[in-house]
């Protein structure tokens, strides 16, 4: 028996969330008195996972499995689960991992707890704490099936080093042509820019910015911080910004280290989606804006004056601390 973790790669390199789920897997393995096996698809430096306590890596090298395909990946992971006799499977909260999670759970007849924020409270019965009701609450979820799948929230458990040496073995899942019946035909992805899902810092703008022509303010601040840009729902509904930037209960969830909200009032649906961020800063002209109640730091002031100055100060700060 072991604990199996799916570690995601992007062009052969592990994503940051891979190290976080591997760290989580190691904590579970210690509780269960077993070891961690990882499965990766086309990882260039699979042994790197040893740093986070993974002792074996199943590296899939098949060309047909070099690009993400939810069904084919889920079936491959299911085969690794059976060859490793794994009882606990760990996934990240990326869009791709959430895509394959349901398929994997269905195939393995396994209970799945998503959005988990801490190591299991007990393993007998197996209980994990997860967010629910769009961050307005937590649920302690007991998984009763023989095989258990846990989706680890971004940025909640953290990356923990636990150096060991990882044996890397080639793994060749048996996947039929018919399992590729949903085919990717085109990927349109921003490159070289932090995404809302992975970014440590997210800078977000609301209707208080008055119009799309003013988004330079947001982008310049984001650039100094290496942050992703986001927006409130009306901003995307008005077409000022693309839908992919809409965050909140009905948009993308944000779980960054720092979330900076500019000209956003802090409606309950907005807060629900961003409150998992560790530190929240609000810049708003209205001292009564509800977001101040949910924030750690705030400036009551006009974004058009405050933001350029903050950007300048941060540039100076970065220059001094470079």
């Amino acid at each position: 028996m072991s604990v199996l973790v799916y570690t995601e790669t992007e062009k052969g390199k592990f994503k940051k969330n891979a190290f976080e789920v591997a760290s989580y897997a190691n904590a579970v393995a210690q509780q269960l008195g077993t070891t961690v096996t990882a499965i990766a698809f086309g990882a260039d430096n699979a042994e790197e996972l040893g740093t986070y306590g993974v002792s074996k890596v199943l590296n899939v090298a098949e060309a047909s499995l070099s690009d993400f395909n939810a069904r084919a990946f889920a079936l491959s992971i299911a085969q690794a689960v059976s060859s490793e006799e794994a009882k606990v499977v760990l996934l990240s909260s990326s869009t791709d991992s959430k895509f394959l999670a349901g398929i994997l759970a269905g195939k393995l007849s396994a209970g799945y707890a998503p959005n988990v924020v801490a190591a299991p409270e007990t393993t007998e019965p197996f209980i994990v704490k997860r967010t629910a009701f769009s961050n307005k609450g937590f649920a302690h979820t007991q998984i009763d099936t023989d095989i258990k799948i846990v989706g680890v929230s971004n940025n909640a458990f953290g990356v923990v080093e636990n150096p060991t040496s990882a044996d890397v073995a080639a793994f060749s899942p048996q996947i039929n042509e018919s399992d590729f019946s949903t085919k990717s035909v085109e990927v349109d992805k921003v490159v070289g820019k932090a995404t809302i899902a992975d970014a440590d810092i997210v800078v977000s703008g609301g209707r208080g910015l008055k119009g799309p022509e003013n988004w330079g303010l947001i982008e310049e601040l984001a650039e100094v911080l290496g942050a992703a840009t986001a927006c409130s729902k009306p901003v995307s509904d008005l077409g000022w910004r693309p839908h992919s930037e809409h965050v909140g209960q009905t948009g993308k969830p944000v779980a960054s280290n720092l979330y900076i909200a500019i000209g956003i009032s802090g409606a309950i649906q907005h807060l629900a989606g961003v409150s998992a961020s560790k530190v929240k800063v609000v810049i708003n002209t209205d001292p009564e804006a509800p977001f101040f109640k949910a924030a750690d730091y705030g400036i009551v002031g006009d974004a058009f004056e405050v933001v350029p100055e903050l950007t300048e100060k941060l540039k100076e700060f970065k220059a001094q601390n470079a």
Binding site: A105, S109, A110, G111, Y112, A113, I127, K129, A132, N135, K136, G137, F138, A139, H140, T141, Q142, I143, D144, T145, S275, V282, F292, K293, A294, A295, D296, Y297, G298, I299, V300, G301, D302, E305, V306
Partner: peptide
Amino acid sequence: TQATKDVKFERPAPKGAVKLVDS
């Protein structure tokens, strides 16, 4: 089959007061 069971719920811890910084 019920595969999972939410055995207990919890509300998020109340948030401390915001620290305001002068503009």
